[in-house]
Design a protein around this nucleic acid. Structure first.
Lengths: 336, 336
DNA sequence: CTGAAAGCGCTTACAG
DNA sequence: CTGAAAGCGCTTACAG
């Protein structure tokens, strides 16, 4: 069975290939093609089960009706949830999504951008890594529509949609303070990215407002260390600071590691320590006790980012940079 | 900044576009192009930062150097782990992977196949849904390389690589019997797919060998019901059969649901009931107590499926159907 | 109302 | 040793 082309249809329907093309693309009416001919072409196309070659169309039009989605790690539930919503939204406007993971590796991220550029995607949605600013600049120079999500570069003129990270951790910390906690720790990674900085700031400011801030209770963990090393560093930190009565984990994977560490140490939640983590996760709902979280507004972020991307794809010139901040949601469970 | 083409290089290097094409594709030597010219072309390509258009190459050669990977649900850890290994393996042989999720929906699966067909991927790796046999037949008719994973259609002549499901649940059940459990339940979904049938058979045969089989202890849950309904049906089942002292969950999501149900009911693991689930998951390692599992040989499956696909892509005619069975691994944790 | 022709960016058989 | 030309499957300005 060989591939059916526009030419086969033209032959069978006894018209020119231009006519076929117009009909297939719904421009039959507009081009003043007779109803009879339109019907005939459609019937033949149907009968031969014709599928236009995306590749030929792309080469000709320069458009692929596809979006490249670059996330940190598609096997992290936050990103896979995000990806699914974005894919659904894109499907509604008849776009395909190609997704891939950076693993928080700058070099890999650059490769992915180039590979998607080569595949000629019409737009990019990206969770950038730390040093990706220049690659993003390249996309801007190429006039490629881009939206950053989850994080961004403060100085760069690119649309982005992120959670209100400052507010999220500020209100979570506030909640712990109101609960009566006095020695509230925070576990962050060593990333210099703005979203992590803002989360830490929200925590710090909330404590400072109450005169409770203690810089010894801030732990920064290496992102690229392995699970055992991370658990060990958490154990060490909590042993050293036995006065800690509450902790805020700034990402879900740090929260999960923390829970593992507490388990190994025999620390009881919320008896010995109250826990809140960023980013909801199935394991947090299933954990004994269930873990409170600052949940990201995944749906809002996904929908908004597609919208921003679409407005760029529709008219790259008229488009203006938009910075969108979406409020997260503090979900209180048994862990506090 | 406009896109650099082979033509721009030809102009700048003062050679014909054929020469450029040969050099870029490393066929310079073979075509007897002088070292000087090769060097000049390479330098110009480098200087202009030339990237070949994948789309033009595809249209011309009919190949895309890409693989379509269709899984049930990319946000399920089993599939995302699988996808990552497949992606890495593919990258090693310089192939891209496009992945997408069926959500166990036949219609969506067909759409995805057609959409990947339109994108002209060179090969398919698919976890088929129940009624996808005819769509797979279509791929065979089109002479498209296909490998099925995780499951397959017994009568169909297609290469596949799956875990030895029968052996996995047989040995897990055997383990529970040897532990002294007498009333061992199993929780399955209503799928008619062979992999689920085999898991249930392994369980059944192990019990029959010891004269312990009791058909009342088999629960079949609707796949497409929501989480609450699933929890409710598990609670009902375990209340009705209070004698159950062990349970085997046949997929990780059923296991997770089961744990939630046990939590709601106040059933203690392994005090009241021993638990083993198929498919390892972070939550199983983190759960209190940690949950024993029949882990799938994800790496083996991924590597083998790429191998089988490659041999088809290399030589579609000489290729012979291969059915590959990979042994799973029983990991005993605190839950038994 | 419809067709012939150019062109998107490549690859490759053919000619010299 | 290198170039001119055909063709992959489309879209669209132009001509009639």
């Amino acid at each position: 069975m060989k591939k059916i082309t526009i030419k086969d249809i033209a032959t069978q329907a006894q018209v020119s290939i231009s006519t076929v093309s117009f009909v297939i693309n719904g421009k039959g009416q507009k081009m003043g093609i007779s109803t009879n001919v339109i019907k005939k072409v459609q019937d033949v196309a149907e009968k031969l089960n014709y599928r236009p070659s995306m590749i030929a169309t792309s080469l000709r039009t320069g458009k692929t009706r596809s979006i490249g989605l670059i996330v940190e790690d598609i096997s992290n539930q936050f990103f896979s949830d995000l990806a699914r919503v974005i894919e659904d939204e894109a499907k509604n406007i008849d776009y395909r999504v190609f997704y891939c993971s950076t693993g928080d590796d700058d070099e890999r991220s650059e490769e992915l951008i180039h590979s998607l550029l080569q595949a000629n995607v019409d737009g990019f949605i990206i969770t950038p890594t730390q040093n990706l600013e220049s690659s993003i600049d390249l996309l801007l120079k190429l006039k490629k529509p881009v939206v950053l999500i989850d994080r961004y570069f403060p100085g760069q003129k690119v649309s982005h949609v992120v959670m209100d990270n400052y507010e999220g951790s500020h209100s979570a910390t506030k909640f712990l303070i109101n609960k009566g906690c006095k020695n509230i720790a925070v576990v962050n990674n060593t990333s210099e990215m703005v979203q992590m900085k803002l989360r830490e700031e929200g925590y710090r400011d909330a404590l400072k407002e109450e005169g409770l801030y203690n810089e010894n209770l801030v732990l920064h963990m290496e992102y690229h260390s392995n699970e055992e090393a991370r658990i060990a560093s958490i154990i060490k930190f909590f042993k050293k600071n036995a006065e800690i009565d509450a902790v805020l984990f700034l990402t879900n994977y740090m929260g999960l590691t923390g829970l593992q560490a507490f388990k190994d140490m025999g620390i009881e939640i919320p008896g010995n320590i109250s826990v809140i983590s960023f980013d909801d996760h199935d394991s947090f709902k299933l954990h004994t006790p269930t873990i409170s979280v600052v949940a990201q507004p995944i749906e809002d972020i996904a929908i908004k980012s597609i919208q921003l991307l679409m407005s760029q794809m529709t008219d790259m010139e008229a488009f203006e940079v938009e910075k969108s901040l979406k409020k997260g949601k503090l979900i209180i469970r048994e862990s506090v």
